[in-house]
Amino acid sequence: MLELRNIFKTYENKPLLRGVSFSVAKGETVCLLGASGSGKSTLLRMVAGLEFPESGLVLFDGLDLAQTAPHLRDFGLVFQDYGLFPHLNIFDNIAFGLKIRNVPASEIHLRVAALLGQVNLNGFEKRSVNDLSGGEQQRVALARALAPQPRLLMFDEPLGALDRSLKDDLLNQLRDILHKTKIPAIYVTHDVDEAFAIADRILLLHDGEIIRDDAPEDVWANPNSVHAARMLGVGNVVEGVVVSANKVKTDFGTFALTCKHKHTKNENIPLLIQQPPSPFRRGDGGEVEEEIQLKVEDVLFKRDQFQVKAGGGLVIHMKDAPRVGQIICVKVRVECLA
């Protein structure tokens, strides 16, 4: 349905987006993950028609939107700090898009009541925006964006200002609503957990380019690049030196190299060191399990396991807490990220 083709944009004379292309299919929720300032929000604003690419196309159902004003696009947008109209009450906020479209008053009342039910805010019609908590305001913003039944929904870090427990709650509601309405959605965030909780597909935006576009489980299993691994916080990214055709030396020992790349001797390559039972790992046989010895430097309690910081900065997780200073043996998988 929505397609972006080769979008370029500079910001203050620095390239911000360097040829971004992706598409969103019907009923699909696509999550755009990237650091702050990476241009995620700019991409959304371009889709909304509030900003324009220097080159590249934004298409919907194959039609170029360059000449379509934002108010004619029928795309809903939900902001991080809600953007509710402070001079209107909850009812008038949600009804805003319907009134613009000259929907009859009786139908507006029915629709607004139904939407308030959908976001669990029954009876909030007459309340003022300023009386609501952050979570409630964001639900009103969602209802307002849903009201005109847009062709596409966009979320710009919608839960960024909310605390953890509220986030989980709202994410569940949001996923429910998106599944029921089948409205395609672009969800922009820098929070990995949030992205994995809501996305049908994940796009990683780094340095103005989409470096990964895949299903969440595949992205998690095969980050395939240093930036992706770092962004997602998968395992440990370390430097290694190639010592022979299939051996690589690191601070933690020398490992077998099984990738398909051609490496020259003494080349520095990035490696991903992970602990084996990784939930999504499918036996594609690319990587090798090896055992290494580590000295424990710090132990942190994390919910159902212990996070162990070891010598050299490696972080692993264990069921039982080791003592600080103890030497432990851990099985790891080593993978080339070059």
Binding site: R45, P70, F75, G76, A145
Partner: peptide, 18 residues
Amino acid sequence: LDPKLEAAARTLGADSFR
């Protein structure tokens, strides 16, 4: 004036006059 409010109104279908 929060520029977001104007953006919100436009994506909700309001032309510049509205």
